[in-house]
Design a protein around this nucleic acid. Structure first.
Lengths: 224, 224
DNA sequence: TTGCCGGTCAAACGTATGTTTCAAACAGAC
DNA sequence: GTCTGTTTGAAACATACGTTTGACCGGCAA
């Protein structure tokens, strides 16, 4: 009993501190003192700081990837053989994320920020862990994207997927700070759901942009 | 003479290492040994590690913001009172970046990654430094964006600008790795200019997307 | 009661970090 | 050549980190 309490308290504290400050910038001493457990508890229960980072991700990502697979199953069943549209695919992803059971009110936004950091901070071990642990839903998502944008060349699609990833990871990774700025400047409250609702149309439109490729500066004007 | 050599060697090494590994993950010893200078040289010439980080940014950003202001001047002069279009504004920015005199072949992509890190790694001192040092060209760019997208609400525009920033910083920041992958998988060579040429249409389309806001999942289909 | 074992705790370990020190080397002016 | 201020160099500084240790506690089976 008591030990699960300790384990979860560590995970909760670590999740929040990592999201606030990054991985390298968060020490085990900060985590254990926030969690009100002994310093040695982390290495006792998890083995190392890196393993703790993995555990923080696994606690969210394992149920999420199951939810996501179900959402893709449903989507493909509903489409009855025809490939799902881009919008449908993107919504399946964001809905799965938003509908995850949340530990607290910050829940999803904390985790989005963590995913952004995972991509940004080049923590080799983390990337390796995520790739070999969750490659299946990732590949499936990529396949759906490909089938939803048959008009794109492989190269175009490749780059535009990177653009989508970037907009998402980057926005989510700084979403707390951005929300604060927005609230101070414009006095508007914003939830992760609302950000997602703004992000998806942006991504879909960019993904399906007319290809003005290799048209250099065009010193006059040329809005699509 | 000799001291400028030292200063520049430190800046070069720091720039590359910061871009590769992040700020906290790069120690002064890594920097000085890569630069082949004495450890104490950093604190002697710059005062502190944080001041070195600022100097790395200033070395690129100061001439860049001058170039950018000129590009905006030209653009507004050419438009003769009418507000420049979104495409023109984005091209002015990317052209200024691409045309910057580059210290080496990696040049611009290294710096894009640094800008991404500056936003992501919550190094308070860095954000403060950038904000108070380069607020003018930044505000001007924001104003141009606003005039180029009068149909957007302030909140929509705010978020879409974040999405653009994210797609750009993220893509450019990992463009070396991405280019390698692309070359291996598809046998295609890619330059930063070509990436920019793909990115701008994507951003412009996303920025001008029809606002499907707050239209939830829409279980059927709804590609614009 | 005894013995054990998972869990906690304070303390220490070794290492790496940013920064400082101070003597030596150097350059240019007189 | 000598002096003066600047730049380098090797070494040390204090501090923070992740990790390990060994004593200690509490419940439970024998």
């Amino acid at each position: 009993m008591a030990q699960y309490d300790t384990v979860d308290r560590i995970l909760d504290a670590a999740e929040e501190l990592f999201a606030d400050r990054g991985f390298s910038e968060t020490s085990l001493r900060m985590i254990t003192s926030k969690a009100k457990v002994n310093l040695a508890a982390v290495n006792y229960h998890f083995g190392s700081k890196n393993a703790l980072i993995h555990a923080v991700f696994a606690r969210f990502l394992t149920p999420f990837s199951a939810t996501l697979e179900n959402a893709f199953d449903d989507l493909e069943a509903r489409c009855d053989g025809a490939p799902p549209t881009l919008n449908q695919t993107l919504w399946a992803l964001t809905e799965s994320a938003v509908r995850m059971p949340q530990r607290n009110e910050k829940g999803i936004s904390i985790f989005m920020r963590l995913l952004g950091l995972a991509y940004t901070q080049s923590q080799g071990h983390l990337r390796k862990f995520l790739e070999q642990e969750y490659s299946q839903p990732f590949s499936r998502f990529m396949r759906l994207l490909k089938e939803a944008t048959p008009q794109l060349s492989s190269v175009d699609r490749y780059w535009r997927i990177q653009f989508m990833l970037g907009a998402t990871a980057f926005t989510m990774s700084s979403s707390d700070a951005l929300r604060d700025i927005l609230q101070n400047k414009l006095g508007v409250e914003t939830t992760v759901q609302e950000i997602a609702a703004r992000l998806v149309p942006f991504l879909a439109a960019g993904m399906q942009a007319e290809d003005a490729m290799l048209v250099p500066p065009a010193h006059k004007s040329s809005v699509a």
